[in-house]
Amino acid sequence: MFSNLANLLRYRGLIASLVARELKARYRGSMFGFFWSFINPLLLLLIYSFVFTSIIPNEDAKTRPYALFMFCGILPWTWFATSLSDAAGSLIAGGNLIKKVLFPAEVLPIVNVLANMVHFFLGLTILIVFLVVYQKMPDPWDLVWFPIAVIVQLVFTTALGLALAALAVHFRDIRDILANLLTLWFFATPIIYPYFQPNVQKFRPLFNVNPFTHLAISYQEILFFQGPIGHWKWLLGLGAASIPLFLGCYWMFDRLRDSFAEAV
């Protein structure tokens, strides 16, 4: 298993070019091409802005503008959720490679996670532009935590992506279960409502069990809320837990590896 993990480093060139291909191919043939990576989040942000200023005006000064607050959680969530659903289908979609070419299968879900990370970064630039426009400049010291949050999320997402990819080969229903589970998970995470809301606090232990709660809160504190990061212990804790999770998921992936060529 560890030699396979080490091999993964050797494949970084392959992973890089596959990520590039994924990004290029996604918008190939469309008129705006790569700009869709900006247009999509921009439109989403405009819609939220309209809804939360004109239709349901936000009363709480702390979370104003509400659309930006939500956006801080939605962007990483989109990365997370899309990565998982892409990864779950990755081995099946890449069946040709696994069956016909000597190909390190774990590259496929990893490429999905990384390609979605690039989209996350592109969406982030839109967010930053709007943060500047609304004069919500994040504290520079807070920003030190940003790469840490990204790395934690990357490890966590990759771990789950590997596990889902391997299992989905054998249990195709996982992809449908996952789609529903992700919707549930989205609403169970303080993304479109703030964590400090009294109703959320009532169920606090439950929210704390949800790993994405800590990622969402971390991003919100880093990018949106003023003041020092109060949630860093949880973030680091999640990071520490993600490493054994990753190893466990990778171990399972490795165990199932030989069955892929036949089951895909």
Partner: peptide, 25 residues
């Protein structure tokens, strides 16, 4: 292995890019 030729070609991108990616694979 010349088992399935062009397995792993991506239909949307050019032959040139596919040659590079296929070669790396």
């Amino acid at each position: 292995a010349l088992i399935e030729l062009g397995a792993g070609f991506h239909p949307e991108i050019s032959g040139r890019e596919n040659v590079y990616i296929n070669g790396i694979m």
